[in-house]
Design a protein around this nucleic acid. Structure first.
Lengths: 140, 140
DNA sequence: ATGCCTATTGTACTAATTGTATGATTGTAA
DNA sequence: TTACAATCATACAATTAGTACAATAGGCAT
């Protein structure tokens, strides 16, 4: 059993689930890319209503720890090391950017075209307060 | 492997397949007249139900990017109206940009940081007159 | 050539699996 | 009791999987 609960603790079930799953991810028992049990599966295991599990998963999703999608399931995301040195951060971004530009160049685009496109997308990002569509989480 | 999937992305498999194939066509890795893998072949490669691939192919077919024929296979159309060819490139760039920004955001970067980094990288690109860094020739 | 068989290819429809949305119920504390 | 958070019940929507079918091409015997 992946997750266990203590019904005597005065801690809500969904919080306990979040805690346990966070722990499992922190200890790499659950690794990036792994699929979590479906909400119904875990709910059955825990003898709990599946909406309670769904609530826990939603919290993890909003924290960008997992990615859940209707009809497919819930998957562990890469854990972003919370406060790596600015040095490493810069390098990570640089690598990502290089990869992006290389691909764009491969599509035959000129620097100016790419610049224009990226700038407008980043502008929408600023306004919307979230990364552009394509994967946007709907925070209602 | 011609197409690769990321189950962690908030994007359905069939959409990811469409995206990847569009990209391959935009970069002319798949040229007009080329036969795409059969739906069952690609489904096996990706470890996915063949109906999922069929759905992707149907979308490409409806977008007039490929021609699929029962009993024969699926082929990249000969002449994407030249108009549409440039549109395909535009779309590919847009998708690429969004993926890039989404990943950056997921790593915890702010729009301003990304903007600054991208601008400077594009600047070097302009000066060098060629795609950034590396040989950029990773055709697998 | 003709006809027949078979394998391969895409199609259509349905079922199963998965998460989502919303409101009702329950329990607990003020 | 009342208020509020937690949990549950129900109906729903999106994605993927299962099954049966139809069109095409190629081989082969006649």
């Amino acid at each position: 059993m992946l997750v266990e609960l203590d019904f005597r603790r005065h801690v809500p079930i969904y919080v306990q689930i979040v805690e346990r799953l966070k722990h499992l991810m922190a200890t790499e028992i659950l690794k990036p890319g792994d699929q979590l049990p479906t909400i119904r599966q875990l709910a059955d295991d825990l003898r709990v209503n599946f909406n309670t599990v769904a609530r826990a998963y939603r919290i993890l999703d909003q924290a960008s720890l997992v990615s859940t999608q209707q009809g497919r399931g819930t998957y562990v995301l890469e854990s972003l090391p919370p406060n790596q040195s600015t040095r490493l951060r810069e390098e990570a971004l640089k690598a990502l950017t290089q990869l992006f530009l290389t691909e764009a160049a491969q599509l035959g685009f000129e620097p100016d075209e790419v610049a224009r496109d990226v700038e407008s997308s980043i502008e929408s990002w600023r306004e919307a307060g979230m990364p552009p569509d394509g994967d946007g989480k709907k925070v209602k």
